[in-house]
């Protein structure tokens, strides 16, 4: 019962946060110095006041900012995120088209980073100040400090250009261009409809961008897991566990892991959000048709409805992840009372 109340309260708070984010995004995107007219109209059209007025009226740019915002929110509550100035499509259907691609990449990157972050962190802590720890420390530092664009270019150069073992860009190879996919989640579609070629093709396109996306998070997670595990290893209750005559493996599995994971769970949750943000850069470099690339194009053309749509989407995922983290927290740490 307590738990349900807690969840309910958190859900209401989430709405408040989303509302705040919508205001901030709306203001920032409309206040940046930049002229959507110049970005979208040609030079001849710009010099014709009639076209300019018609354009402003069409996109509501002639209204005061707060009226624009209220109109936007009204439409949003009716499930209408507006029409993209650039693609002339409803933002909602644009997002629906790109979300599966980004979701696939971010999920694979998250699995990469959590799996290896956890594994490396544990190994580092268990072999504290020994060779594996030193090696992993260098790797995690590299993961954190190498910029994504540089890593992308390096990996593309080695694995695509030199070795030719992975495809270069896009989401699918030329064989599948223009094909219609039932759900848009290619890995799911490939497995559900028994298309091993598609699966191989899609995974091949995903591996490099996911790895680049995961690299820094993997490094950060390795460090977090390592330090929280080391902290747990200093605790008195581990001496109690040893005094019980438990083996080192059992102590690590049963007594260190659960306690050490508590601080790391926050990182796991937040990493998903930051990965989504990271897709803007990675998708642009790999010409991967996802929300990130869409957001990049929207930003460069001052396509307000699209900017709002992608920002709200990424913010919603972040808020949702935070919410999940808090629930997981409450489940694994009995000391937390809601």
């Amino acid at each position: 019962m307590n738990m349900l109340k807690y969840i309910g309260r958190r859900l209401i708070l989430m709405l408040v946060v989303m509302f705040g984010i919508s205001i901030i995004t709306f203001c920032i995107s409309h206040l940046v110095p930049g002229d959507p007219l110049a970005a979208n109209l040609g030079q001849t059209a710009m010099s014709d006041p009639e076209i300019v007025a018609a354009y402003e009226a069409k996109w509501g740019l002639d209204q005061p900012l707060h009226v624009q915002y209220i109109n936007y929110m009204k439409n949003l509550f009716h499930g209408d995120m507006g029409t993209s100035i650039r693609t002339k499509q409803p933002v909602l259907s644009d997002l629906a088209q790109y979300i599966p691609a980004t979701f696939e990449m971010a999920t694979i990157a998250t699995i990469f980073s959590i799996l290896f972050g956890l594994l490396f962190g544990l190994l580092s802590a268990a072999r504290h100040n020994k060779l594996p720890d030193h090696i992993l420390r260098v790797f995690s530092l590299m993961g954190i400090s190498i910029p994504a664009f540089w890593l992308s270019i390096l990996l593309l150069y080695v694995f695509y250009l030199r070795l030719g073992v992975v495809p270069g860009s896009g989401r699918v190879g030329s064989d599948w261009l223009g094909a219609k996919f039932p759900t848009g989640f290619l890995i799911f579609d490939a497995i559900a409809y028994g298309e091993p070629d598609l699966l191989r093709d899609a995974l091949g396109h995903l591996i490099l961008p996911s790895f680049v996306l995961a690299a820094s998070t993997m490094g950060i997670l390795t460090r977090t897991v390592r330090s929280s595990m080391l902290e747990v290893m200093q605790q008195d209750y581990l001496r109690t566990a040893k005094a019980k005559g438990l083996s080192e493996g059992r102590i690590l599995r049963c007594h260190v892991l659960k306690n050490g994971l508590i601080p790391s769970v926050t990182m796991f949750g937040l990493s998903y959000g930051s990965l989504l943000g990271g897709t803007v850069l990675v998708e642009t470099i790999f010409s991967y048709p996802g929300v990130g690339l869409y957001a990049y194009k929207a930003a460069t053309t001052l396509d307000f409805p699209a900017i709002m749509g992608t920002t709200l989407f990424i913010a919603a995922v972040n808020v949702l992840m935070n919410f999940l983290v808090d629930i997981i927290y409450a489940v694994i740490d009995p000391r937390i009372r809601y």
Partner: peptide, 14 residues
């Protein structure tokens, strides 16, 4: 077997 000084921290909190 051994009993330690600090009962507050000698047990695993989770």
């Amino acid at each position: 077997s051994m009993i330690f000084q600090e009962p507050m921290t000698a047990l695993n909190p989770v």
